[in-house]
Amino acid sequence: MRAHKITFAALVVAAGLSLTACQNDDDAAAQTDPSTVATASPSSGGTGSGGSDQASPGASSGGKDTSAGSGSGSDESGKAAKCRTDGLKITAIDNFIDGDPKGTVAVEMKNSSGRDCVIAGFAGVDLKTNEGTLSAERKGAPGEPYVLKNGKSIAFSVTYPLNETGGTGVRITGLVVTPPNETKSVTLAWPGKPSLPVTDGSGEPVTVGPIGSAGQGG
C-alpha cells in the first residue's frame, strides 16, 4: 500500500528564490513503518525543528502501551528522552505514483540508538537547488507524542509541484532533514523528480507533513 500523502503549507519557487528558516512547533506525531530505503550519514548544520521533548509513560499508539519506563534511555523522571539526530537512521524514497498531480517523497526515521525515544511534531526540511535553499513549510495536524521503540521507524511526507513546463526549471540537488527538537541535520540525495517549475510567485508550494504522515496507508 502506498504511503499516505499529506498536503502542506505554501512555499513558492520563484525566479529570485529567498532563503527561509524552517521551524517546527511543539506538536506530536503518529506511528508508521515505511519501506526500507537507502541511507545517508548525519552531518552538522541545517535548520532547526520543534516538537515535544517528552511523552508521559503509558502514552499509547494503536491501543498499545508505549511507555518507555525507567532505565537506559530514560531521563531522571523515568520518561523516555527525545529522539536525537545521532540515534536516527534517516532515509528517503520517491513516493510518486503516475497520475498524481504533485510529487511526493517519503522520509523515514529509524530508531537506531539502542533505546526508546520520544518523537513529535514536524521535522525541518530544506531543498537544496541550483538557485539556493528552499525551506518547506508545515502542513497538517500532528498527533500525540510517540514513543519510538528501538529498531522501529516512523516517517513523513514532502510534497512538491511537478515541473510540467517543458523547461529545465529549478534543479533540486539535495534534501536536508532536521529531526524535531534538534539542530543537527542530515543531507540526503534527492530521490524525487529532478526539478521544480519556475513561477511568478503563484505556483504550488513545497510542503512537509507532520511526523507519521507517510506510511499510514489509505
Rank of each mutant, 00 (worst) to 15 (best):
S56Y: 02
G73M: 02
G217T: 11
T159A: 09
G217L: 14
S52G: 13
A155K: 07
S52V: 04
A106Q: 06
G151F: 13
V186T: 15
T165N: 12
G212V: 14
S61N: 05
G217F: 10
G87L: 06
K102T: 14
T39A: 15
V147Q: 03
L162A: 05
S153F: 10
N130D: 14
T66P: 05
G140N: 03
T133L: 02
A28P: 13
S44G: 12
K110C: 05
N24I: 03
G166W: 10
D100Y: 07
T199L: 01
D65L: 12
I119F: 08
E204R: 09
D53G: 10
L11Y: 09
D75F: 00
R138K: 06
V125P: 06
F96C: 01
Q23A: 10
D94P: 04
D26L: 11
D126N: 13
S41W: 05
P101V: 09
I6M: 04
D86T: 10
G143F: 03
L162Y: 05
P161I: 00
G167I: 14
P161R: 01
A38K: 07
A55N: 04
A106T: 08
C117W: 00
A106E: 11
G46R: 14
L127Y: 10
T47M: 08
Y146C: 01
S185L: 04
K64A: 14
I97S: 10
E108G: 07
G218T: 04
L175M: 11
S43T: 13
P145V: 00
A189Y: 06
